[in-house]
Design a binder for these strands. Sequence first.
DNA 1: AAGAAGTTCAACCGCTCAGTG
DNA 2: GCACTGAGCGGTTGAACTTCT
Length: 322
Amino acid sequence: MGRIPCCEKENVKRGQWTPEEDNKLSSYIAQHGTRNWRLIPKNAGLQRCGKSCRLRWTNYLRPDLKHGQFSQAEEETIMKLHAVVGNRWSLIAAQLPGRTDNDVKNHWNTKLKKKLTGMGIDPVTHKSFSHLMAEIATTLGPPQVANLTEAALGCFKDEMLHLLTKKRVDFQLQPTSSQGGNMNSAYGMNNTKPDTKEDTVEKIKLGLSRAIQQQPDMILSNKPWELETTNVGATQTHVNGGCNAFTAFQYGQSAFVAEEDGSPWNQSMCSTAGDQLGHLKLEDENGEESEGGKEIRNGSSLFSTDSILWDLPSDDLMNPMV
DNA sequence: AAGAAGTTCAACCGCTCAGTG
DNA sequence: GCACTGAGCGGTTGAACTTCT
């Protein structure tokens, strides 16, 4: 039993709309309104599917639409709401006057996701990668924890590579006093060459392995059955006294600290390892070391401590959230 | 200058939901 | 309660444009 098509597929034009078509649709709707989309193309003299007309109108022709760049405030709203409601684009768009769900969705997919990833935050869960690594660790038995490096890479390799291969990365894997080993000879201090993807992955592996080896108690102590979950507003924060390094990485804290020490990765992806992983320095095109990178600085201002996730008073919403 | 690679965004598709008889 | 229909939603696609090599 097939689904009844919304219109006859033949005799129906598809693809980009022409200015004449836009005019026809706009003037028809101005006169007759938007009742019965199936009849609109026929009556307006358009060889288009009703659904296509509705989309064109709601996403482009509606007079109350904004077409320019998203403002910082709008981006903030999207990110906050996405953390709460997920991919409910229409719900999010309802809070942004003049923006459509399609606009919001596109902006999220092309800009905001990357921005978050660049900050070491998983755009799906809105948790830092280090937090997610900790969660992975809790699902592994002690013998498997040794494989955490591989597991973490499996999960975040794409994100890491995206970030690391887009920017010039200066790995400075600093040895700790307890290590005693000569990290300089192993990795080369101030290795300013980004190398190949494979090299990058190997370096991440080495750093993570070392961190995990040095902190097995911390990772193992974060057992799911010992986790206490508290609700903070609309988001959940895991609280575990023995594993503070992993707790409560939300935008506010993450970005705030990142700005302080200039290395978002140190705080997010690398916070598990802390100093053992060393510092990832981001350099700009001129080879100048940036304080966390341009992207990150923008992110920091976006996620100021004044606008952390759970601080979203319902009064701020344009429309009541369901 | 030209081709390749990456990015953006309008448009489409198929599914679900709500309204109606 | 059921069937049917229109509207709306979110995921995906691909053309156009931009940037890189």
